[in-house]
């Protein structure tokens, strides 16, 4: 197990104006799950269920209220600032919105080489080598080196998401968090990105922590899945098992609401209805 999350709870203090007393909001409640090396683990849940909060905890952008997060056997909370920085080169993240997650004032070259600059001490690349690696990464994600000096707004959504993936891969991470990497993209482009992710996993032996609310995508990408509802894990297990024989009501509800692109399986039409 490369990542173990043990009984993690996260409370937020919510203030309702200057006079009211602050209350607590529990975004995650006693969450436990573990992700094996080289697998694709899916996390599914509706908006506001706490998915992004969990990734922020894994990345140590926020502190847990209680519980532990272990990466490769070490408790993240116990790490010194130096070790934490080192760890950040092993865990990387690709964000949901390819439009907002790239700095509009930086060129593609600067965006992708920035993580290598930050982790200069572990990677030890000079400027020339960094540029070479940026070109290499751009080719890896199917963009080509000619895009080196363009700005993010000059790219389409799918291309931007590839830039985001290239940036995440720049420091040779083992563990990639994908926070709804395709929800802002067209299905055609989503297919391209999903295929790219599959190729990369095979080539680089990555572990994926894949967040989505699209059950079709999760089923296609993940080996194991956890369903999260209002901050609590309601079911987890092998993907096929959950899709074929869901145990919780919530899983059944989600599966029944998932719109399948097959006109014959529509809840609105009796199957016997004729065409037209």
């Amino acid at each position: 197990m490369i990542l173990r999350i043990e009984n993690v709870t996260k409370d937020f203090k919510v203030s309702h104006g200057p006079l009211a007393r602050a209350t607590h909001f529990t975004a995650l409640k006693d969450v436990s799950l573990s992700v094996g090396k080289g697998e694709s683990f899916g996390l599914v849940g509706e908006s506001g269920s706490g998915k992004t909060t969990l990734t922020r905890l894994i990345l140590q952008l926020d502190r847990v209220s209680s519980g532990r997060i272990l990466f490769d056997g070490t408790d993240l909370a116990s790490l010194s600032a130096r070790d934490l920085r080192h760890l950040r080169s092993r865990i990387q993240i690709v964000f949901q919105d390819p439009y907002a997650s790239l700095n509009p004032r930086m060129t593609v070259h600067d965006i992708i080489s920035e993580p290598m600059e930050i982790h200069q001490d572990t990677l030890g690349l000079n400027a020339r080598q960094r540029t070479d690696r940026v070109v290499e990464l751009l080719e890896l994600v199917g963009l080509g080196g000619q895009h080196l000096f363009r700005f993010p707004h000059e790219f389409s959504g799918g291309q931007r998401q590839r830039i985001g993936i290239a940036r995440a891969l720049a420091v040779r991470p083992e563990f990639l968090i994908l926070d709804e990497p395709t929800s802002a993209l067209d299905v055609s482009v989503q297919a391209q990105v999903l295929n790219l992710l599959h190729e990369l996993q095979a080539k680089l032996g990555l572990t994926y922590f894949f967040i989505s609310h699209d059950l079709g995508v999760i089923r296609y990408v993940c080996d194991r899945v956890a369903l999260i509802y209002r901050g609590e894990i309601v079911e987890q297990g092998e993907t096929e098992r959950i899709f074929e024989a869901p145990e919780s009501d919530y899983a059944r509800l989600l599966l029944s609401a998932m719109p399948e692109p097959d006109p014959d399986r529509s809840p609105f039409r009796p199957p016997a209805a004729s065409a037209g």
Binding site: Q190, A191, Q192, L194, H198, R219, Y220, V221
Partner: peptide
């Protein structure tokens, strides 16, 4: 669109 029967890497796009 990924469907239930598809294996990973089979998506056409």
């Amino acid at each position: 669109v990924p469907t239930a029967k598809m294996k990973r890497g089979e998506l056409q796009g």
